[in-house]
Each structure stands twice: as C-alpha cells, then as structure tokens.
Design a protein around this nucleic acid. Sequence first.
DNA 1: CTGAAAGCGCTTACAG
DNA 2: CTGAAAGCGCTTACAG
Lengths: 358, 358
Amino acid sequence: MTTPQDAFTPRAAGARRPTLEDVARLAGVSRAQVSLVVRGSARVSDASRERVLSACREVGYRPNLHARTLAQTESGILGVLVSDLHNPFFAEVVDGLQEGVRPAGKQLVMASGGRSPEVEREALEMLLSLHPTGVVVLGSVLADADLEELLGRGLPVPVVSVTRVVGSALVDSVSIDEAAGAELAVAHLAELGHRRITHLDGAGGAGAADRAAGYRAAMRRHGLQDRAEVCPGGFTEAAGAAAAEELLHRCGEDLPTALFVANDIAAVGVLSRLAEAGVEVPGRVSVVGFDDSWVAGSRFTALTTVRQPKLRMGLLAVAAVLERAAGRREPSRTVVEPELVVRSTTAPPARVGRGGQG
Amino acid sequence: MTTPQDAFTPRAAGARRPTLEDVARLAGVSRAQVSLVVRGSARVSDASRERVLSACREVGYRPNLHARTLAQTESGILGVLVSDLHNPFFAEVVDGLQEGVRPAGKQLVMASGGRSPEVEREALEMLLSLHPTGVVVLGSVLADADLEELLGRGLPVPVVSVTRVVGSALVDSVSIDEAAGAELAVAHLAELGHRRITHLDGAGGAGAADRAAGYRAAMRRHGLQDRAEVCPGGFTEAAGAAAAEELLHRCGEDLPTALFVANDIAAVGVLSRLAEAGVEVPGRVSVVGFDDSWVAGSRFTALTTVRQPKLRMGLLAVAAVLERAAGRREPSRTVVEPELVVRSTTAPPARVGRGGQG
DNA sequence: CTGAAAGCGCTTACAG
DNA sequence: CTGAAAGCGCTTACAG
C-alpha cells in the first residue's frame, strides 16, 4: 500500500528503485530475458515480451544507465560542453548535434560553463566522468593549455571543438573559414561603393583574430588598405555599444560609412548606440554582423550578416566524434564556408556626406 | 610507447581507461586508500595522498561516475530538462540553478527537448535513467498527462517544474504570479492614461492562460472591462508579428493605444511589424512585454516589460528538489512575484488620435 | 593505514 | 528460451 507520496520517502527510509530482478520475478522469467526485452532484441517470443513489458510498467521499472554503461563500457552518451547558454549561436549548433545524434542512437548530455573557466572546467570533468562516446566543446573559454591538459588526461575520449580550433592533435575541430567570411562582408560593402570600412574586433573571442586578419586581407585585396581600421570591441552587446560610442567620440561627424562588426550581438549593440545618437542605418552608416543568429534575422534588427552554417556545423561535429570513436587516428580539421545574408542594414554610401568619400 | 594518437585506438583494439586499481598499483597502496584520496577524505596521511595524486596524474586517472553512482546509489546529479534552448528565458533560469547547485556539491546535467514532445520525452527518460538526485523541468511541451505518466513511473525522483504548474502531487513547482504580472502591466498603462489596452495571448504556452485571465481581471479592476480584448498570439517572434499583422488588418486606423503582449519575444515581433507599418512606438501605440529576458533589456528593443525573477526561480527550484530529496512529502507550490520594468516602449496615449479615447 | 570481500544493477557469454 | 556465473569500476564496512 504505497500512495504516490510515500514514494518520496528518503532512500534511507527504504525507497528503492525497481531493478531487472524485480521485473524478472514478477514476469516469471530470467533476468537475461528481461534484459533482452528491454533492449528491444528480436530474439524473444511475443508472449514473453508482453509479460515482461507489462511487468516493467507494473513495477515502474526504468533501466539504470550507470549499471548498463558499466557493464557495456559504452555509454551511448555524447557530452556537450556549452560555454555560454545565453549565446543563441550555440543553441542552433546544438540543434544540429541533436539531429546528427539521433540516427546514431546516442543521447546528448549537456553541461554549461557559464562563461567562467572554473565552472567550465568542472563541467568538462563531469562530462568526462560519464565516460561518454565523445565530447563536443562549444566555444570554450578555457585557455588552450588548460583545455588540452584537461582533455589529454582523460585519454580515450574523442573530442571535437566547434568554433575554436585547438592546437592539440587530440582534438578535432569544426570551424568556419573566417577569412572568407570577412571577405564576403568587405566585398559586399565595397561593391555598394563603400571605401571607408571599419572593423569592430571581437577582442579575443573564438575566431576573432582570424576574422580581423581576414578583414585586413580583404581590404588589401580591394585596394582599400589605407582605409582599413580595426577598433577594439567584443562579442557582447555591451561591447558593441561601447565600441560604437568610442567611434562616435573619436570621429565626430567624420564617421566611416560602413562597419563590419565581429558578431551579431555586438552589432546589435552598435545599432542601438547609433540609433541613440541619431545616426541613421543604413542611410548614414552601413552595418554588417557575423553569425546570422536569430537576433540578426529578427525583423526588428534585420541585420546584414555573414552566416555560419550552424546546423551543419553541429552535424559535422557529431560525424567527427563518431568517426574518431570508430578508430580514426588523424585529427580532423573541418572548415565550413560562410555565406552572405543581405538584409536592411546595408546600402550604398550617402552621396551627400561632408566627409566626402571616393 | 603510446603516442597521444594511439590513445584513440578503438576500444576493441585495447584502449582502456585507467581505473582505481591501476592507480593503487602504481602508488603502492590499497584501492580503498585511493578511493579516499580521490574523494578528498581527511583521514589520509599527506605522504600517501601525494603519492596517490601523482599516480593519478601519471596514469591519467579519471573516476568513473557510473561505477561511483552504482556503488553509492547517489549520483549527485541534478537533471535539467530544457524544453527550448533558444529561449533566453531558460538560459537565465539555468544560471540560477547553477548558482544554487554549487554549494550543494551537485552537478547540473542538461538535456534539451527541442520543443518537440518526442524528443523531450526521450530526453527526460535519459535524465531519469541517470537516477539523478532530482530533476528540474523547464517549460515542458509535453501534455500534462504524458508528463505525469513519465514521471510517475520513475518513482523516487523528486521533480520540480519551473514556469509550468503540473497537477500531480508528485511534482513541485516554481512559477510566477501571472495575475499579479498582468495587473502590473495593465495598471502601468492605465496610469499613463490608456483605456483601450489589448492583450496578445500566448496561445497555450506555459502560464499563458493565467496571464490572459489576469489581464481580464485587471481590466475589470480598472473599470476598463468594456475595452478588454484578447487576440490570439503565441510565444514566438513570428507569432507576435502575425498577431500585430492581424490587428493592423482588423483595426485599420483605429488601433488600441496599448498592447500587453504575452512575452518579450512575441513583443519583439509586434514591434517589428508595427515599425514596418509605420506605427510609432510609443508615440501611437505603447507595448508591454513579459519575462524581461535579455531581448527586452537590449538597448535596441528597450521594451517595457514584466520581469520574472529568473535567477531566483532557479535557486528556488534547486531548493525545492533538494528538500524533497531530503524527505519532504508534501508537494510545494512556490509562487514568485513579478516586477514592472519601465523602458522606452510605453508613454501616455497621444492626445491627437482620431480614435479619441476617454 | 591494509587487504579481502560484498555489493550496486546491469550485460554477456555459456552450458543446458 | 533458462539459470548460474563472471565482470564492469567503484564504495563501504570490517577484521587486522
């Protein structure tokens, strides 16, 4: 006679989760038989399958993943370390992971690093303690050395880093061709007629350095080298707003006609600061972001941006981990191609400017 | 002679994760001793602790959480089911969970439902198979009956639902006083002088019905009952945009002077549609959202909204689960208070309207 | 502190 | 199909 509430009596007081044994006893079959049924084996007669399943329901049996993993030495778990749950970029990559993982019959287990190295470290330790089939690291904030040390110790766990390229041969990576992305942004603006295109940097964020280098190269390629300018920024809205503020302060009326911002969130910060200052976008200044996360696609923002194929990056990450788990020995460095998405924050430069551009 | 790459040889080929046994052998102590050191017991001499720890490093030992849990029948894991990773609201609640869980020495393990009932169901099954200390459900999209059935089976796992109140006595809940939130929104608008305040509904989302009912009650309380109007909407930007579209179509020039929208994301959709239609906010129409997720706080949106204390809700959820795990038998229904956050999308109604409000 | 042992809940052969 | 057994990697007493 247990009421539902009795079920919550603390363990010490006797609550016990039903096991295979309980089911076997009730169904009048062997434990091995129950194990087969639970895992959906075909080598079981329909009659006994029925009895077992109904016994499972009756006692409320739920397989213990820990016991199963211990016995199998294969958890079927794919660990995902998300450095920052607030960044919509990662949510979309996780969609891709989810999609990639289903056909493989694995389960995604996530832990968040909360943008803090210590928390991330603990989360990663926990994930590794789960002895997962593999681990996907989304945008770690750990220093390269720390990350490698942490992963190096756990040995035979395939790890793939998305966004960030880790030096170690132990770690696969899936990242975007940052230089190509920067080229797309600059080319688009140059084609519209912009000559003075300033880059607001990502300040140490994953890929930011390559993005900035790509920008410089692109400016050179378009013969705009003397107009190239990189301002410190960051990957957050506040950083974007601050960078815009700094720019307004420094340039006064003589603003660049176009801004290529390190990512979408920062670009939103730029847009708001410019709006406050009464600087029209794209009338007076054009703005291009990076990522194409949903903020960019929001009709309210309607930001022209460089798309990262987030879903595909997730799929590729799963593929990399699974291959490595299956025995591939060489590290894989997958690089995906960006794509320009033109929305409403870019237009040809105003002809009536006082700065007078070429 | 194993190079780092050899570590990735598939299991079948002999890769094996180091165990307690390996460490004990290397350090020349018993397994029990290693176990004590690894768990940080004080009853170990410094000398042998040192030897053990260095052996751990040398062989790359990492405790197997599955084995530990199996032995302890306590995983120290708090499972978190996130219905939708894309909703910034949940990310902030998770921050609270993270904060609450650290002092308790537990680990957060997350799984995402991807807004799909089937995926959510599988994710929840997996979380329960981890035999966690407890489970926190953030905004389930499962039907009440399904959710209860799923949880009811797993028995002694404390479960708390955040945002959504589940009928079952088995499930604790942490939610906001929706009626009070609606009252804050309506009172704010009424004080500004608005009389025609339309509610854009959340259409079945968690809490939406109570929010709408709260709106009606508040309109009654403010003597605005005859001006009360609820339009179908939803909890997404697209739904908000569609609702605004519908409203524009139906009302023509005779728009309500204020909109109370079911949540922030939908409110952003409303703002963009209104902007496209050339309807000034707050000049012509005031808009209030719900949640105070970061989209609302964005300087670009600057949405007046009703704040849910997300961090606190996370903390309370952890507390509820832990208490229940410790033996509390009665279900707990925690209700938190909302708070009005005034930003730039609300203002007194225009006096120069052709609709002419009282 | 050590060492031997039992047990956690499963899976996996293996003989019948 | 059954039944008995070993083993996965730990923890937890317990006698020394």
